[in-house]
Design a protein around this nucleic acid. Sequence first.
DNA 1: TAGTGGTCTAGACCACTAC
DNA 2: TAGTGGTCTAGACCACTAG
Lengths: 248, 248
Amino acid sequence: MGTTQLETVPEPKYWHLKTVLSDALDSEFRVGEILPNERDLAARFGVARATLRQALEQLELEGRLQRRRGVGTTVAPPRVGIAVDPDRHTWPGAPGDDWQPVDAAEAEAPPAAVARLLETAPGDRVHIVRRSRVTHGQPVAAELLYVRADAVPDCSGVASVSAPARAAAVLHALQALELESQDRTVELGSARAEDARQLDRLPGAPVLVVTTRYVADGRTTAVAVSTYRADTCRLTFGASDPVALLAG
Amino acid sequence: MGTTQLETVPEPKYWHLKTVLSDALDSEFRVGEILPNERDLAARFGVARATLRQALEQLELEGRLQRRRGVGTTVAPPRVGIAVDPDRHTWPGAPGDDWQPVDAAEAEAPPAAVARLLETAPGDRVHIVRRSRVTHGQPVAAELLYVRADAVPDCSGVASVSAPARAAAVLHALQALELESQDRTVELGSARAEDARQLDRLPGAPVLVVTTRYVADGRTTAVAVSTYRADTCRLTFGASDPVALLAG
DNA sequence: TAGTGGTCTAGACCACTAC
DNA sequence: TAGTGGTCTAGACCACTAG
């Protein structure tokens, strides 16, 4: 150290602001506390509101802040560890999983990316089960589960029963099949309007998209696309005790 | 359907713009093609440049676009599937892994979050090995591997050899230990200045942070914090054939 | 109704790249 | 040097929440 680098590359204001705010959050604020409003903060730091907002957006992305229109900006609690695969090789809907069926429908055309995974031809019918995951009273994930209709033949054409009942029927039928394997991908996405509503966020909010492929009878039988709130969630894999893991 | 919903909730301009641009990307552009510059695009759609940029940022976040200062905005190729755990229960640096050691150092104070995982007391020494992962000629991830110094005692105090050699020495010493288990977490973060440089991105760029805990001898012996480019990477878990998975 | 964050504008200048 | 995306400003209005 000693002679530090010259300020030949001045860092952007919003980046410096983010650092200052981050330090302040650590030392001067407690979880849940409300920050001054954006106009006050901007004035206090001598920057335009847009610049201040750029810093706040970064901090929100990192899970340090929570902003709600009409309410204010609060200090966020540490991210929650969410077990994505508790090492159980079971179908969705197996006893003890953390998801709740919302409704179900039958459709001919899943999104192209899903159809590719399911290896369905155009016209092949699929069940679409919508589920949601709630932890500590907060919605953390929304899911669309696509199931080949020919894998659960007893579930078709029961339009009379309620949507939740249809969802339960599809999930129940899956349990009878032998699950050979499953694999997952995780990527960054932005919440579609529908998911955003379910997650209590604005459309476009950053989400972690987990795509799970369920293989049975030698082929991909179901595909789950689960979108987790990226601001509040930390996905855990193969951890026996998630709470012991990295917090913040 | 039939009577669609009234436009009682007009969607934001940037959100609509994003949809329009996304469709245009699918139909009128090929991968690698250069889009008109931001000023032209904004004029063409009759919006301010800032609004246009908001739409482009979303598309970049979703991996659809790639923007480079001084160059332009290009259509991004589909995200690359990156195997995070090819089901091999091995230490980092085992033969055949996809990481290349960059350098190594010895320090007293790892970040607080890492120290908590390693269960080190202040003053306990740790080795810090920097590694990088390259796929298809592109840097996709940067990693800091923290190793308890007392787990690899032969690696200390060899300041005379080169940094890469020190890194290799620490990695080599790890192979001799018996790995009991490992677990991971995935969360969204933003690239620190150092990582950003290594990933050829600007500071603050969105990254997927994978934290891996390596357990040996009944305790956490090493912790790897790997930051993957969120715009270009799709992390795969337990997939035998990543290329067969969801693309785009 | 008052106050908050979310959206949008029309400029300006800067840092970087490639010619 | 010309052209690109990145940063920043000083406003304005809107949508939402809570008293």
